[in-house]
Amino acid sequence: MRGRRRKDKDGNIRLPVLADFSSIEVFVAIMETRSISKAASRLNTAPSVVSHRLTTLESLAQVKLFNRTTRIVSPTEAAERLYRHCIEIIHRIDAAEQELWGANAVLSGDLRIAAPVYFGMQSIAPILPIFIRRYPGLNVSLQLSAQAANLISEGIDLAIRFQGKVDIKNGDRMILENERVFCASPRYLEEHGTPQVPLDLQNHDCICSSTPVPFANWSYREKGVAGVIRVLPMMQSDNVLVMIEATRQGLGIAQLGRRVIEPFLASGDLVTVLDAYAPDPNYLIATAPDSNYMPQKAIAFVDFLVEHLAKPRGVG
């Protein structure tokens, strides 16, 4: 992408600030990672190359874009303004390629995906090689974390998350509905009895997701009416696998997704309880950094997940 030489306000001849697409890529990478070294890693080049390109860009722009220390790269107000335009340029180029080649487009470049740890291990990892073989031009990176990714700062192209509702206006794309159940081991129920109504849970040991407060609010539904019961966790974890194992070994009752415990239900290690009071489902959704635009490579991965994972029963 070559631009014509232009005159600045003093009549001096200078190159356009974004003389080629690589300048845009470098600038966006620095903005989204807040790091020269991380930007270099994303672009598969040396930090010195990124630093030099940034210096050249600032020189052409005749404005400081980043405040840099040995550890921190923070954008200036000018960089924030420029970033919005650069993202629009990238989206327009991507849209133009999609329109030009349509279904025959060859997807290429980096695809950085963030997903919950256990879901990623159980459901994405086994089928990811199929996707990679289908689109060999993509360099796929899967980041598994218990924490929701900051899409912009971490340079994530697509986040896979569980949440209580699907917000189409916010750019959410639903992959599947996630059925949730109460469950326990037969051993635990033999020793402590089986709860008959949600209020009984207050007299049981409960295994919960980590909460910032000493108690946990568990939702349930009774004859179509939503309710909440406050329970005191005897154990908490931000890892579903830890919760499953504790439940399987008889430490208490948990509220989990049915599909994630399906193998243990089939083996008899776990059973469901309070089926008449099962909570509302939540949803596995995909979201991109820009709520108004999802790149074609991200759409391809979401379509792939829907193709392989969407079933009547949810994933937890």
Rank of each mutant, 00 (worst) to 15 (best):
D110S: 10
G252H: 10
S35Q: 08
A78Q: 13
S210P: 00
R34E: 11
I89D: 00
R112N: 10
Y293A: 06
I261V: 15
I244G: 04
I93H: 12
A300K: 08
Q255G: 01
F119I: 13
T211F: 00
L270T: 09
E32N: 11
V197L: 09
P126A: 12
R133V: 02
M121W: 11
E190R: 13
S74T: 15
I253Q: 06
V242Q: 12
Q98N: 11
M243D: 03
R4Y: 12
Q255K: 14
V73C: 02
F21C: 05
D172Y: 04
L241H: 13
Q236W: 00
A300H: 05
C206F: 04
Y277L: 06
Q143D: 11
N239W: 07
G227S: 09
I93D: 08
E307T: 14
I89M: 12
F66H: 11
S145Y: 03
I130F: 05
L65E: 04
V315T: 08
K38T: 00
H91A: 13
D200G: 08
L82C: 05
I127K: 02
T55R: 15
A39W: 05
S59Q: 14
A78K: 15
R42V: 03
Q163C: 12
L274Q: 01
G268H: 13
G252I: 07
A115F: 00
A254V: 11
A105V: 08
I229S: 03
P116W: 01
S123I: 04
L158T: 01
E307F: 13
R42F: 06
I168A: 11
H308P: 02
I87W: 09
I90L: 15
N67V: 13
T69G: 04
L100T: 14
F119G: 04
F301R: 09
A288I: 05
A184H: 05
L60E: 01
I261W: 06
E179G: 10
R230D: 02
A310K: 15
M31Q: 09
M1R: 11
P47C: 01
V26A: 03
A78F: 05
R173F: 11
T70P: 00
R221L: 07
A103Q: 13
T69P: 03
A96N: 07
V242P: 01
E177R: 15
C208N: 09
S209A: 10
S209I: 08
H308C: 06
L199Y: 08
R221F: 00
M121A: 13
A276Q: 13
L151W: 06
I168Q: 12
G268C: 12
V140T: 09
E25G: 00
T56G: 06
L251K: 13
L144G: 01
T211L: 06
V197I: 15
L274W: 03
L111N: 00
N170I: 02
A61P: 02
I299P: 03
Q98V: 10
V225R: 15
H52A: 14
T247H: 06
V140Y: 00
E154D: 14
N12L: 12
A105F: 01
S41D: 01
D269S: 14
L305T: 01
F119C: 05
A226R: 14
H91C: 04
M235D: 07
K311L: 09
